Amino acid sequence: MSEGDSHAPTDEGGFGKRIALGLILGTGITAANADEAPDSAEAVFSDFVDALNVSDATDAALNQKFDQLPAAEQERVADVIEEDPLSLMQFSTGAPTLTSGSETVAEPALARKVASSITTAAHHSVSTSRRALARSVASGLHIHTAVSSPRYTATYPVNASLFGITTGTFNMRYVFEATSTNVTRNLECSGWFTGAAGVWNISTSQSNYLSGGSGSCTVRYNMALAFKGSFFSTNKQQQLIYKGTRLTSASVKNV
């Protein structure tokens, strides 16, 4: 065997080792790429629903709705979740409801004192009380019980939903006093969220005013969501305006 032939097995063994090393390295690269591969649409949606902390029944209903979507739509939804998950939420409103009630404000202390004095004088002398009453009428003195305008409570729920399934509700309450034509006093303007907030962080601020017989209540919701290392935010505003007991505006909008 020639010298060249004697080296052939050694070269062939080295070549085989290089192939084996290449396969090992290749396997390592493939595993690394698999770790960095994007999640499937199903996994992205499932993570989002889990983050909302909805009930088991709602979780199952949402995933069933997602599974019924065409593959292309599932991919689109997954892309939206990763870009801005809050934009998937839908907000549906019903008609505000108005309930009535009234209260009587207690007589002012001065009016009670004057009325008591007149009553006491009547016990001492009928003629004296008659003269006192005549003088009171002549001087224009009148004693009235102070009565407020009727009280009304308006409620205005707005449902937050995904695929038509409610996950929470933004509640608004506006309490005011009014005649049939004018709001005379605002008593309460408030808003709060009920339901599954999950990773949402929701804060509220309220404002109200009276102008030209109209009363207004405005609630602003500042919503934030931390999801998979990213931070998203959006703001919603609810508003009710009444002219007396007549609803003139009910709105929900982005601000």
Rank of each mutant, 00 (worst) to 15 (best):
T155Q: 14
A134S: 09
S149W: 01
G215H: 06
N186T: 06
T204P: 13
Q206G: 08
N201A: 15
H124K: 10
H123F: 11
Y221S: 08
P157V: 15
P150L: 11
C189L: 01
N159Y: 07
S136L: 03
T120V: 06
T145M: 10
A154C: 09
R135W: 01
L133D: 13
P150K: 10
N171W: 00
S214N: 13
T120D: 15
P157L: 10
R151V: 01
S127P: 05
L141T: 15
R220E: 04
S125H: 05
N186E: 11
Y221E: 09
N159Q: 12
R151K: 12
T181H: 06
A138P: 08
V183Q: 00
S129R: 13
L162S: 02
A122N: 12
T119L: 04
Y156S: 01
A160S: 13
T179V: 08
H124F: 06
S211W: 02
T166N: 08
L162Y: 07
R135L: 05
N182F: 04
I202Y: 02
G168E: 03
L141Y: 01
R151E: 06
G195W: 00
G195A: 12
T204C: 08
F232S: 04
Y156A: 03
S148D: 15
H124D: 15
V147M: 14
I143S: 11
Y174I: 06
S136F: 00
Y221G: 10
G168I: 04
S139N: 14
T128V: 13
E177F: 09
G215Q: 07
R185I: 01
C189M: 02
A196G: 11
H144R: 10
S117Y: 10
A121G: 15
F231P: 09
R131P: 13
S216K: 12
A224S: 06
P150Q: 09
N208M: 02
N222Q: 13
N171C: 10
N186K: 01
S203I: 00
T167W: 04
Y209M: 01
W192K: 09
V199E: 13
T145L: 11
F170G: 11
V175K: 13
S161W: 13
A226D: 12
Y152C: 01
V219D: 12
T120I: 08
Y174T: 04
S203Q: 04
S149Q: 11
S230N: 10
